[in-house]
């Protein structure tokens, strides 16, 4: 078996004090690992520890050397005026725009501030999934999405998971049940 892209062991994380843990899990290439749990259980804090914005009190986080990481934030920056097109946004993460799936292509030509909340979220997720990153963190990717867009997101995740690992933080059990290869309950 190959070395995991991410291996977390007995991790306790938080800010001024511990908020979550101890937790252990790993993400292998081709896996979609779900982190779930009730609101306030520390899912985003755990993700913050992986990114480096939260404090690690004990335990370890190991990434396979050379692993490129891409993060889709729970609340992506949305300014009242953002004169940047979908194509330009994708180029920032080196995400494919010519090979973008049919659900994403109509979002690329115009300014991103003209998109709905769900469309912008889908574009952000594609900016992560379509990038050359090996390990992708998605934080509440279904926020602002209607059922149709969530369905499209699920399709993207399944189609683009090969050769990379995806860690999805969400409180939507149904979404994870359909897609995740493994689910880690936080705060259980």
């Amino acid at each position: 078996m190959s070395e995991p892209l991410l291996e977390v062991r007995e991790l306790v994380a938080g800010y001024r004090g511990p908020v979550v843990g101890p937790l252990s899990f790993s993400v292998e290439p081709g896996e979609i690992v779900g982190l779930t749990g009730p609101n306030g259980c520390g899912k985003s804090t755990l993700l913050g520890a992986l990114i480096g914005t939260a404090r690690v009190f004990s335990g370890s986080i190991a990434r396979r050397p050379g692993t490129r990481v891409m993060v889709q934030a729970q609340r992506p920056v949305r300014l009242p005026e953002m004169p940047i097109t979908g194509h330009e946004l994708l180029r920032l993460t080196h995400a494919q725009d010519k090979g973008a799936p049919p659900t994403v292509r109509p979002l690329l030509d115009g300014r991103v501030d003209r998109l709905s909340g769900g469309q912008f979220q889908l574009l952000q997720v594609w900016a992560a999934l379509g990038s050359p990153a090996d390990l992708i963190y998605l934080d509440e990717p279904t926020n602002n999405m209607d059922p149709g867009t969530i369905e499209a997101l699920g399709g993207l995740l399944l189609a683009w998971r090969e050769q990379r690992g995806v860690l999805v933080v969400t409180h939507e059990h149904g979404f994870l049940d359909r897609l995740a290869t493994r689910i880690v309950e936080v705060g259980a």
Binding site: I51, G52, M70, V71, A73, Y137
Partner: peptide, 20 residues
Amino acid sequence: SRRLLVGRFFPDMFRANGLA
């Protein structure tokens, strides 16, 4: 330019890749 735009729209990307 690219770095400023990435820092604005994907603020966690640098830190997550070890560039604190």
